[in-house]
């Protein structure tokens, strides 16, 4: 695997490893919660980046995969007492399947229409699950405290969830890198640049796009299981919150879409900033507005994001920062 000997990949992994091990060293639950949120964002944003950054399709309702995964996992925990190692892949599988079906039906839509239909899919799913009795309708699913027993109690279970998220984030960063540097990835990039021209060159865009969509949905599905397992309950409103998708789009923009490092940096910076704003008495109430202004500034003035800006500024970095 000579391809993996890329400094950009290793920098990215190193950052995430350092971040992930931080709570292990401090053994502090509050730090762990903070880093868990960041890891979740890193995983989600890196996955979404496969579709957004590599393929050029804006999935606004991407949270639908997170929510669906969460619900599938919670259902398995509740009804079948299913262990984590079954529920997590099941959530990923469900998300992947949904993405496959959607990919076959909506990926022919381009630009704004695709973004719109993904919003519609998320809202339809939220409304549907709201009516679905087995999933608890509007009240959702709540776990008994006893589900954490097999893991040696809630405290241990939380650490287990944490390390699983950590491992998955690392794994998917590597997967994201391997996709970007593969033939498949080149096909995706060519679709992003000019889909019609790519098809003329023999790129089977419908298939590639579908697989990109599936790959970008699996990890969010698994992360949904982890988050709601930790949370102890899931409701339609929490599971399918459109703002969650959009926050992740912002992180990707911030760090640099289409790069491996970008979403990771973006997730860290965005979550830290949000945390700081939330505790600052001055900004607490208008935290959202400050984030909004920040987003606007990025969109208007540095739309390629931090890593993209570096790559443009110093072309040599193109090789180093994939």
């Amino acid at each position: 695997m000579k391809r993996l000997m890329n400094p950009g990949l290793w920098i990215t992994l190193l950052i995430v490893v350092a971040l992930g091990l931080w709570p292990t060293i401090t053994r502090n639950a509050a730090t762990r919660e903070l880093v868990f949120t960041i890891l979740l964002a890193i995983g989600f944003a890196s996955s979404l980046n496969i579709l957004l950054g590599y393929t050029g399709y804006v999935s606004f309702g991407h949270v639908v995969f997170y929510g669906l995964g969460g619900y599938i996992g919670m259902y398995l925990f509740k009804q079948y007492n299913s262990p984590l190692w079954i529920a997590v892949p099941a959530g990923g599988l469900a998300a992947g399947l949904l993405a496959f079906i959607l990919g076959k039906s909506i990926l022919h839509l381009r630009g704004g229409y695709f973004a719109l239909v993904t919003i519609g899919v998320n809202e339809a799913m939220r409304a549907f699950i709201n009516t679905l009795k087995p999933f608890g309708g509007p009240t959702g699913i709540e776990l008994d405290f006893s589900v954490y027993k097999p893991y040696g109690g809630a405290a241990n279970a939380l650490w287990l969830v944490y390390y699983t998220a950590f491992g998955l984030a690392l794994l998917f960063i590597i997967i994201s890198f391997m996709i970007k540097t593969s033939k498949f990835g080149l096909g995706l990039l060519s679709i992003r640049e000019d889909e019609d021209a790519a098809e003329v060159m023999g790129v089977i865009a419908p298939n590639l796009k579908t697989w990109a969509f599936v790959l970008s949905a699996i990890l969010p599905g698994m992360l949904g299981v982890l988050f709601f397992f930790k949370n102890g309950n899931v409701e339609p409103g929490d599971a399918f919150r459109l703002g969650f998708s959009i926050e992740n789009l912002v992180m990707i923009m911030l760090g640099g879409q289409g790069t491996v490092l970008g979403p990771v940096l973006g997730a860290i910076v965005y979550q830290r900033l949000r945390g700081l704003l939330l505790v600052s008495p001055l900004f607490k109430n208008i935290q959202l507005s400050v984030s909004g202004v920040l987003l606007l500034v990025i969109v208007l003035f540095i739309p390629v994001g931090a890593v993209g800006w570096l790559r443009n500024r110093f072309p040599r970095l193109r090789r180093v920062l994939p």
Binding site: L186, L189, S190, E193, D194, M201, V203
Partner: peptide, 15 residues
Amino acid sequence: RPLNELTVRENVIVG
């Protein structure tokens, strides 16, 4: 219709 953000080499590799 060049693939603008890709290098010349990558453009041709796609072909």
